[in-house]
Write a protein that binds this DNA or RNA. Structure first.
Lengths: 348, 348
DNA sequence: GGTAAATATGCAAACGTTTCCATAATTAAA
DNA sequence: TTTAATTATGGAAACGTTTGCATATTTACC
């Protein structure tokens, strides 16, 4: 076998070519103050000439750092996630780190695998949004125990020594409910994701509290809890519209479900917002396209992503030890009122 | 300074603990056939006990490989891109590689930077979709010259020693045009991205050829070339609808633009598809939500992503040298006919 | 002219893994 | 029983970079 020498050229090669030591070359390349300008110039010129490329692996090994941050998210292609990922990627790139992205597809098994894989690849920090089914977070212990910065966003643990970034889900639930109530709705169907997940818990709590404040009943038949897929949305809507009495509002905790609800309501011959009002969550681009446009809760994914990225970078820089008591960062939500609930009203 | 010993534990530590050699431990951990089962068991048990974690950096340095694949794309959050990225990530993860994702934000400067950064981090393969302004691809030479697998998708170079995956844009342009013509349109406005980019060139060529075949004129005033942003779409639509005669069709080469066109046409009091037909490109989720639903050209991003991922992995495995003559992989497109152009017709 | 500081460079070890090449132990073949 | 093959393990170097420490040179100040 022909031993193809080294790919390009190493610091040692440059050193040999210039008859100086590798240390000097290394220092010259990163503008160490104690290297004379003359030497720096020679080294850089030679490096360019030989097509030298820094080897991040070797440097990483020596320095025990990879300049890499890991990201775990359920699915990149969902609008809300992709917006967050975009923001995180941009920020992390600006801070000089590489971002290694993994998807769990909402599989707890895969989540455990990728956590381990990212640990093995020595990421310097980890940003994660968990699967819908993650209730046991102990697979993240390898990070928290070895003091590697760990930031959760959106789908986060309740109590874990890590920085947590999450939307104000309680408020989202409350504002949605208050809005519907203020528009006179009494029979509100609430379609939620599984309560294993913190954000659906909080939204539901906010929703329930608002109803209670207004002394409105909340019968079981108006409550649906399941993964918010297209198929599930259809099944639920079929149930809802299969027989009267029909509800006068549907609050869906994601937009896909709200969109399906609108379609089913229309097919059932109901006027929106006259007969029934519909409210979604996340302010997906489709919400302002559909007719009537959907009222939805904006979550500012870009802000959330930026905060998550800033948080890891900050933690890495400051070498902060993560405490269980670290206060969560709550990002704002904002109800975007559109036609599906009657639109902006005069004086409101 | 207190020298915090090594993070967790290394192969050497395990070796010491069991009083065997590091080579044996290394081999045992990866089930080398020449290691006895007894030893393997002991080693693995000890590894688990000591919380040993493989160090991918050290292994990468030694093996001169990183088990990492790089991905460069303009913007993750655009629907088409995020679908591709999702597919690529999944495939790459399945194949046992990590995926490092970079965004260029359509900046040529950033593209050059990230290409270099990914090279330095020793990715074993690179998947890239270029910026709209990339006409000179020489910054990718460090990859092609060092024989590192290089795969372009969607926005690709015309002639470069790399594997190219692209949609059948010529056909997309043709089918769109033929469809509009078959529905009786004569004054078709064509809104395209800049012709610096291969895919807009091809779509335009397909469009133009179809018109020519049908002996339809193509006046300058019906042609618009600019980046397909929301703002540009609005500006163009204002121009289009500011004065009669109005066109009887608009073919926009992305969906955002087509959606804006629909809105402007509606505002101008035109009936869709009666007075004007509108056609988009990419089959964004919004196209089937908007009313009337938009006819659009489906590009099967998941397929494209899978092919791209398969291609890099294959190239890495086979160590294929990239030749300039490597035939491009063309993924299919499919016109999805909806109401905005009259919907599916009987017998078609 | 002597000492001290500042400037510039080199030596060598270390990061943790893998693998080529020995060697030792066991089994099979002659 | 010797030789050959097989099975199991160890030694040591190498991957390419960085950095603490040492040393050499220059400049500055008494």
């Amino acid at each position: 076998m022909i031993s193809k020498k080294n790919t390009g050229n190493t610091i040692v090669d440059i050193a040999r070519a210039l008859d100086i030591s590798p240390s000097t070359v290394s220092r010259a390349l990163k503008d160490h103050p104690y290297i004379s300008q003359a030497t720096k110039d020679r080294v850089k010129k030679q490096a360019a000439k030989m097509g030298y490329r820094h080897n991040a692996l070797a440097a990483g090994l020596r320095n025990r750092k990879s300049n890499t941050i890991g990201l775990i998210c359920p699915r990149i292609s969902m609008y809300f996630q992709s917006s967050i990922v975009t923001a995180i990627q941009r920020k992390v790139q600006e801070a000089g780190y590489s971002l290694v992205i993994c998807q769990t597809n909402d599989s707890y098994e895969i989540e455990k695998q990728v956590v381990n894989a990212l640990y093995a690849s020595r990421v310097e920090g980890l940003i994660a949004s968990c699967t819908l089914h993650t209730e046991d977070f102990s697979h993240f212990d390898i990070f928290s125990k070895s003091g590697i910065p760990l930031v959760f966003y959106d789908r986060v643990p309740r109590s874990y020594p890590a920085q947590v970034i999450r939307g104000d889900d309680y408020r989202g639930g409350t504002e949605g409910a208050e809005h519907l109530i203020s528009r006179g709705c009494k029979q509100i169907v609430y379609i939620s994701g599984p309560l294993t997940c913190n954000l659906y818990q909080d939204r539901y709590a906010g929703f329930k509290d608002a109803l209670q404040r207004h002394k409105l009943p909340l019968p079981k038949k108006n409550l649906f809890f399941h993964e918010l897929t297209l198929e599930n949305a259809r099944r639920t809507c079929e149930r809802i519209f299969s027989k009267k009495p029909w509800p006068d509002a549907i609050f869906a905790t994601n937009d896909t479900t709200a969109i399906v609800a609108e379609q089913y309501a229309r097919e059932a011959g109901l006027k929106i917002p006259g007969d029934i009002k519909i409210l979604g969550y996340s302010n997906d681009p489709r919400t302002e396209i559909i007719d009537p446009a959907l009222t939805s809760v904006e979550q500012f994914p870009a802000v959330m992503g930026e905060k998550a990225a800033d948080a890891v970078v900050e933690l890495i820089r400051k070498k902060t030890q993560l405490k269980k008591t670290m206060p969560p960062i709550i990002t704002p939500v904002e109800l975007v009122v559109r036609a599906s609930t009657g639109g902006r009203m005069a004086g409101s």
